[in-house]
């Protein structure tokens, strides 16, 4: 067991290193942070730009490999370097992770719970009205890409607010910094409503499809029949025996989603103007921010691998068949 974990850890470390390096090299060779300084009015002297860029390890006049070496020596000590305008990448990341988490936690959990419930229900009521309704709705929702859904929600809210003449539901930003205490908390909750809806709808649709399929697979199996042959009611047999078994695959997806939650939601964050990890990904590209790009990649790789590990652990915990005895 210990040996297995060590081997897996080693492989993962290598994967993360390669992924981050690839991203760094790609960004460092294709991006042009100089552009942000060159176009300034009044113009900045070239040697000043060079000095600034050198200080941030972003100077395209330095050979790529040299910059890479500097970057690596920083990363191994836990320092991801400077952003394009000299901020600390570490600080930026530390702040943004929590923004993403605050945004996503509720939606992720809610989406899973509602989705599983609806999926199980529609499997039990296969081909009846509930099933058809859930099925059609989830198909419709899955056909609407997140960015469209978020835009639609924002437009709708804008119109509602305008019609009412006051802001009923907030649709940009995380909170209003001018408020404090309970008001601020309420205001934060208000800001959460739209993004949470947009996130939840998608995952409800996703989980309900998965759970329905899994549940249908299990429903036809012998052990559900055995449970009823013992004298359990159909409903009890379904929840206690079928649902418990059919939950395993959805739960692993959930574990994965939970682990990657920290990497943010690109579209939701951008459209509702939350400055989380997802938005950073887009911003850093627009700003030619090489070190941030590399840091985001690094972080994403770690999250994905941790999430994969998490879901493996969860399978082992939920399913005695794969547990190591």
């Amino acid at each position: 067991m210990g040996k297995y974990l060590l081997r897996r850890l080693a492989i993962n470390v290598v994967l993360v290193a390669i992924a981050a390096s690839l991203a760094y090299l790609l960004a460092a060779t294709t991006m042009n942070p100089r552009a942000a300084y060159e176009g300034r009015q009044p113009p900045v002297a070239e040697h000043v730009i060079d000095a600034t860029l050198d200080a941030y390890n972003l100077n395209d006049k330095t050979p790529v490999l040299e910059r890479y070496a500097t970057w690596v020596s920083g990363v191994v000590t836990g320092d991801f370097g400077k952003t394009w305008n000299g901020g600390s990448v570490n600080d930026e990341m530390g702040r943004r992770i929590w923004v993403s988490l605050r945004l996503l936690l509720i939606g992720t959990v809610l989406g899973f719970v509602i989705g599983v419930a609806l999926g199980a229900l529609s499997a039990i009521r296969q081909y009846r009205f509930t099933d058809r309704f859930v099925g059609v709705s989830s198909f419709a929702i899955m056909a609407i890409p997140v960015f469209l859904m978020a835009t639609l929600l924002a437009i709708a809210t804008y119109n509602v607010n305008r019609g009412l003449g006051f802001t009923l539901i907030e649709y940009t930003g995380e909170y209003n910094p001018r408020l404090s205490g309970w008001d601020q908390l309420l205001n934060r909750v208000n800001h959460l409503i739209l993004p949470t809806i947009s996130l939840t709808l998608g995952s409800v649709a996703f989980y309900s499809r998965i759970q329905r399929n899994m549940m249908l697979d299990v429903l036809g199996q012998d052990f559900v029949r055995t449970a009823m042959a013992k004298g359990l009611r159909r409903r009890t047999a379904l929840t206690k025996h079928a649902l418990r078994t059919a939950l395993i695959p959805s739960a692993t997806y959930f574990a994965f989603a939970f682990g990657t939650m920290f990497t943010g939601a690109i579209f939701t964050e951008k459209i509702f103007a939350w400055h989380g990890m997802g938005a950073w990904l887009v911003d850093s590209i627009h700003q030619n921010d090489v070190n941030s790009v590399a840091a985001v990649t690094f972080f994403t790789a770690i999250c994905v691998l941790t999430a994969a590990f998490l879901s493996d652990v969860l399978v082992a915990a939920l399913d005695p068949r794969v547990r190591v005895s």
Binding site: I18, I266, L305
Partner: peptide, 19 residues
Amino acid sequence: VDLLLVLPSFLIIAIISPR
């Protein structure tokens, strides 16, 4: 496959495609 899965595809495509 693992490596490609770990790389944030959105980011890579976004960097390359405008070029």
